[in-house]
């Protein structure tokens, strides 16, 4: 199949690659751009392991074709770290034991990042509902929810301090 010239902005950097239009975004990211943070758990939009941020929205990159992303701005887990390593969400997941095998974690944190942009002050219910597209087989979610709520309050506190 003939290849297309794909230009994207990924984690703030302009990147280009050649790929088939039918290639899934998750494969473009993982195999062509070597961003192996987002994972594959189902390839059918159910598990959320492949979640990335695309043009300001959470998407499941296993069900997006390369042909659909020309010129898109994409953020993966690799782009969420703060300048000195772990960002607020990442630290909060660690502090609250919000991960075990770590396989769902990049998708979880990427989704949580967008959720907190959409709703900076969510209730526990809103977190549970807003994260329902991301499956975890290890943690039972309780500590993930805790980690996100805690990150929200930290982010809000630092926003206030900055004002």
């Amino acid at each position: 199949m003939s290849k297309m010239h794909l230009k994207l902005k990924v984690n703030g950097k302009s990147v280009e690659t050649l790929c088939e239009p039918r290639e899934l975004l998750i494969h473009v990211l993982r195999e062509r751009l070597n961003l192996t943070g987002p994972h594959i758990g189902c390839e059918t939009s159910h598990c959320g392991a492949c979640t990335v941020d695309m043009n300001g929205m959470s998407v499941k990159s296993c069900t997006v074709f390369a042909a659909q992303v020309q010129g898109a701005e994409i953020t993966t887990i690799e782009g969420l770290a703060g300048p000195d390593g772990m960002g607020v969400l990442q630290t909060s997941f660690r502090e609250h034991h919000g991960l075990q095998c770590g396989y769902c974690t990049p998708g979880m944190i990427t989704r949580a990042h967008r959720l907190l942009q959409e709703n900076p002050n969510p209730t526990e219910e809103e977190v549970r509902f807003g994260m329902a597209g991301n499956l975890c087989r290890c943690t039972g979610y309780q500590n993930i929810v805790k980690a996100i709520l805690h990150a929200a309050s930290e982010l809000n506190a630092s926003k206030e301090a900055a004002q």
């Binding site: 961003l35 192996t36 943070g37 987002p38 994972h39 993966t76 887990i77 690799e78 770290a81 390593g85 772990m86 969400l89 990442q90 630290t91 997941f93 660690r94 991960l99 770590g102 396989y103 974690t105 990049p106 944190i109």
Partner: peptide, 12 residues
């Protein structure tokens, strides 16, 4: 383990 997993640096 968490520093690498939370930053997408696991090696599966």
């Amino acid at each position: 383990e968490d520093a690498r997993f939370t930053q997408g640096k696991g090696n599966y």
